[in-house]
Design a protein around this nucleic acid. Structure first.
Lengths: 253, 253, 253, 253
DNA sequence: TATGAATGAGAATTCATTCAT
DNA sequence: AATGAATGAATTCTCATTCAT
């Protein structure tokens, strides 16, 4: 869709490589790790609703009680799960920012694009991370994550505004708005089929690698079109469209 | 904040009047109403997690069993709560659109502004209505409501795009993004006090844009500043800023 | 089926006339009667399981509370229902005995035949009367009824034995056995479709002797065949077959 | 009572040995067994009406929730109870048939005698097994059992009829009638102490044939007299008395 | 460390009974 | 007499947590 260097397709090609080494579902891994991994799997498969202690222990191949050897409570286990996942997400986004180089606008859009792609790849988990309510303890971590997330975004926004690459605006609010916009567009619909859809759980439908090819515009892949439209929306919302590129996707003429 | 006719302040002045008569938490009101009201209160106070039949009945001042004289199940009670609240919300937004007259951009921004204001007034409920997962039955209503909501927005967006008042864009995605942006900026932080906060229920607190600054500064009410910034964000996100008004709040130059 | 005077067919023709005037389901009947009738209807339709106070009151066209104006409790209502029905049954059976004249064997078989026919006509009610467990209070009435029933039978049995029309035997045990045999053959299968069959309520279906055969074959109505076989069974069980009639249905040669 | 070889007394002497080892009500037995046993005890004591999960758990000396570790639901627990008991009953009856050798009449009467004896030993349980309505799931098992039961009887009846040892008759109806006769004579009266009697559970009391008389008189145990009379009744009902033995108990001449 | 059976508080729901009108 | 809304104890079932082995 975008013919310019730094368009969504290229960004992905570059950044997917930077992403975390997937956490090992090892067979004879330390029990603690197996539990963390199992908890994540179970949440991805059925949301918190299905994430009973019994289900997690079963998946981890240990007894119920064993969980309490390693975590003070179910909530504490999930706090850790969240920290793990969120940490990785934020790290990947930071990497995306760094990889964007000096282009201020790109430093804003690149992490958003990454966020979109990753959320698209695992809607259930994204839903759980972003919205699904759980325990008070876990919610605190979620808030922490959202805050970190926003701060990262508002940081680059602030720089871009200071550099005149983006128009004056409240960077915190814009950051929040961007996260919300992308989240709603991506995971919101997930909640349509209430909760993280069980039926399609574990069946990774779109993959970034799958659609990571060529200019997205002429591509039939609906996810690519969606990502391109999201990029355009973020561009407009930040004011990047008006100042930087007159021919951005979704722009008049 | 906006010096133009139809700015957020005026809009509110006009529209708040159209809004529903707040349902009475009457003492000796019909039990059915007391239950509906209690259910809403309990959800506002503690989310669905805390909204047990016992809690609702206690709050309504009736016995547990009484609930079942008036509603087939807990889920049916909540369906009704949702329909009540959502119906009012959508009606108010439609009224806001109508009141906006022929100005295409205004017809988009006015309902968003109203949405923001109302969400700001009751964050916990907004959160529950927008995101918190519940029963399948209730989720259906929520989906219905979200769809109606987006359709309303994408409708006016479509008209505005067709009329050339806004740049070409996917109206559905923009609608989702707008809702998400506003929601995140307003209700997302609610989860800060884990779950919809019990203690602070109904006490509007500052959110994302705590460090609000810029042209909205001269306004005393921090919420007004927030709303003004949100208005600017929406303006940019829809492309209204670029095409229509070069001096809108949060715009360069 | 039986060519002899006093065969099952004739007995019925004679006795159906003697039967009680069916209790009036009157519209503006005294409330008390309406409740009794409604209770019976509801039990017939869905067994005790479905016979809630609410269901009965609804059917009677009165409020729940009204029931307690006329009966001390639900159990007391059913005691009365039982007494009504059972009283009528026993009265009809006494009439059948009287109508049988001096034939000792016939005085035993006639009430059994009547019992069979009536149970066949309303299996659900029969099941409820004979077997379905309810309240302690009601069970007492049921026992009373069974006792009366047996006493009536053992009375005529005793006479027949004394007169030499039947071989020596314990009349009480034979009476119990006869009631049980007929009951099992008729209502037992009803419980197959667990509880009184709701769907087929009032629709007399074939029972145990579906593969009826032998001399009863020329009769088209399966119920008639069943009744004939039952008659033969009772004849044998009482010893009537051996002493009185060599050519009775179900008898050798 | 019977002077012939194969009379009820001998049958019992032979067959009681074949009977199941009574399931142990052990103190520190595996919980699952304790629950099964407790369920049976509670049903015997108060019928299904009193067999709440709480009552069973209490009797088993475990918490309510423990039941669900061992059985999927209350109904599944009872299905197992039924299968246990019924399986044993049918097996014992089959053994009784086998032990009866080639005597066709004996092959019919022996299992009935066994049935009588066992029912006499535990009337409450027999009542619950035969008649008391419960859950749909459990009723299926009951139906299964009754069918097996009747098939066993009608099988030997059919053989006996074919061999000319019994007069022509509908074997299915006779089988049902025999079960009903014996059941009524034995378990019917149980409902006297409303519901299966709590206080007298396990205490065999006299039944229908309280006024027992005739040839059984010389026997000391009233239950033996009852069994002898029942044997005579079954003999007559099947036609065995008329065709085979002119001097059977309860027969003239 | 690990186990997994046991726990028990709490969930939604039902229904005979009461009582102010 | 009649109403019918309200009651509240009882039901089955769930699940995070504990603890003896």
């Amino acid at each position: 869709m975008s013919a310019l260097p730094g368009g969504t397709a290229q960004r992905t090609a570059r950044l997917t490589a930077l992403v975390d080494p997937p956490p090992v579902p090892d067979a004879s891994a330390p029990t603690r790790e197996r539990l963390l991994f199992a908890a994540r799997e179970v949440v991805e498969a059925g949301g918190y609703a299905g994430a009973s202690v019994a289900a997690i222990a079963l998946r981890a191949g240990v007894a119920n009680g064993t969980l309490y050897r390693h975590f003070g409570s179910k909530a504490e286990l999930f706090v850790e799960v969240f920290r793990d996942v969120c940490g990785r997400e934020v790290a990947a986004m930071r990497a995306a920012v760094d990889a964007a180089g000096d282009d201020h606008v790109e430093r804003v859009l690149a992490p958003l694009d990454l966020f979109s792609r990753r959320a698209l790849q695992n809607r259930s988990l994204a839903w759980a991370l972003l919205a699904e309510p759980v325990d008070a303890l876990v919610d605190e971590v979620r808030l922490e994550y959202r805050r970190t997330y926003r701060e990262l975004l508002s940081g680059v926004l602030r720089e871009a505004i200071a550099a005149g690459a983006l128009p004056p605006q409240d960077p915190d609010l814009t950051a929040a708005g961007l996260v919300g916009a992308v989240g709603e567009a991506l995971v919101g619909p997930v909640s349509a089929a209430p909760g993280p859809p069980t039926a399609t759980a574990g069946v990774p439908r779109r993959t970034a690698a799958d659609g990571a090819h060529g200019p997205a515009g002429e591509d039939g892949d609906p996810d690519d079109a969606l990502l391109a439209e999201l990029d355009a929306l973020c561009r407009r919302a930040t004011g990047a469209a008006a100042t930087v590129r007159a021919d951005a996707p979704g722009q008049p003429r």
